[in-house]
Write a protein that binds this DNA or RNA. Structure first.
Lengths: 254, 254
DNA sequence: GAACGCTGTTTTATAATATAAAACAAATTA
DNA sequence: TAATTTGTTTTATATTATAAAACAGCGTTC
């Protein structure tokens, strides 16, 4: 695959910014990229011209620009699944007071496409655009479980089962067993496996051809939602997931 | 300002996608960019490698990628004003049932940073990341009105007063008069000037040093909100705007 | 207040890359 | 079935990106 070096470098510069690093100066970027500061300057000025990067007038430091917001939202709106799922996430959140999410698979991770915050459960981890590991989350388990066998094998090749909380699944065998359970019962759960104090359930969304396209979840605080209430929420979740699948043209109800 | 041509071209390719054009094939991009298809191929593959562009496995067409969503949300979360304003927009929307927005100035346009949809007023135009003209919108008028004199002059130099609805302001003099009125009364209104059937009011948000940093607005449907209710909403709007300014360290209440 | 250090920006020679022409394989269309 | 179009790959070379050097400005230290 051909790589355009200058473009590759510019995109890597943009990767230097994260939630803890919101601004950088040229010399810092130059050091991290191991590029001459005049090279970095040229790349930054081109990104700035297009609005992907901004330079603070007072400090001279660079930050991510509004064009990313524009393009990101444009990208989001082009996703039918997000439009189709939105009102169901809102309904489920209002019915239960909990926080609901829509997630898709990208590579070997999930990505949050939507989040509706419930007044009863402020969930900190999830955020639109953020990535979520497959093995530690309900949405991740669902997204993996319903993949074709060869796709699951490919996902698990060299997969890193990092320990996130004390109860995170950390072995491949345990994860495969969990996926079989998910497939059997039609939904998944992560019980504080990704975030202490948070229990989530997720259900699959299928498209017209029967393949999984996304997962929706409901997230609750362990301290406020007991087992029987949680089970009732799962039923509601599955109902909304099915409704979304039907609007996408899915016709097989298992 | 030095421009890196390959980067410039790649970013222009990304600009080819909009709300009506969500996917393109290489030959289409090649034609629009007037570049050889093997040049376009190299640029696309580099963008794809970083996740900014995706190629549909079935059709071979290219689309905007999830990296834009990730970076866009990262950018949004780095904005203090968005964090500071959020709960006030939610409160105002819940109190009134209407749709509320947060907008900042970028160049000669506003950009929506937040939107809270009210159950009583589904507003179609606004969307996070979208741009809004200054002369036709309440938020735009406020963002312009509170700028320093020289900044207003610069904004208006070569400004295009396009007619958007039958009642849009289309002359510079009328707009300047409007900005003076806004400054005088402390809020602005667009009465179907940007979107037929929609009336909005906006109020300024100031930061600690007294300069304007953003505007918040409340949008209503003309058919459901009469004049006296609208006036009551303006008072609530100004109250929330002032509260946000105070949290940002602003100390002068006019 | 002067000197020093660091920063961001500009200029330009040239090493290195991006570009497009040609070719190829695959898919689509007539 | 043949022709056309598409996406991908290879590679010669025209063109650009790169970094060294220099400059201006700002902040810090003495």
């Amino acid at each position: 695959m051909p790589i355009i070096q200058a473009l590759d470098r510019a995109l890597k510069i943009m990767d230097l910014f994260d939630e803890y690093t919101t601004e950088l100066k040229i010399t810092e970027i130059s050091a991290r990229m191991e590029l001459h500061k005049s090279t970095v300057h040229s790349l930054l000025k081109t990104l700035q011209m297009h609005g992907y990067i901004n330079q603070d007038a007072e400090t001279g430091k660079y930050k991510l620009g509004l064009k990313l917001l524009e393009k990101g939202q444009l990208m989001l709106q082009s996703l039918d699944i997000r439009t189709a799922a939105r009102k169901h996430l809102v309904a489920l959140s209002e019915q239960t007071g909990q926080t609901t999410h829509l997630v898709i698979l990208d590579g070997k991770e999930g990505v949050y496409l939507d989040k509706v915050e419930g007044e009863k459960a402020a969930i900190r981890y999830s955020r639109i655009g953020r990535r979520i590991s497959l093995h530690s989350s309900a949405v991740g388990k669902v997204l993996a479980a319903y993949r074709a066998k060869d796709e699951v094998d490919s996902l698990l090749r060299n997969y890193q089962f990092s320990k996130i909380t004390d109860v995170t699944i950390t072995s491949k065998d345990a994860f495969v067993n969990e996926l079989n359970l998910v497939k059997h019962q039609g939904y998944s759960i992560d019980n504080e496996e990704n975030e202490p104090g948070v229990r989530c359930a997720a259900a699959p969304i299928f498209e017209h051809n029967g393949s999984i396209v996304a997962a929706i979840s409901i997230s609750t605080l362990v301290s406020t939602v007991d087992d029987s209430l949680f089970k009732a929420y799962i039923a509601l979740l599955q109902k909304e997931a099915e409704a979304i699948s039907l609007t996408l043209g899915f016709r097989h109800v298992l």
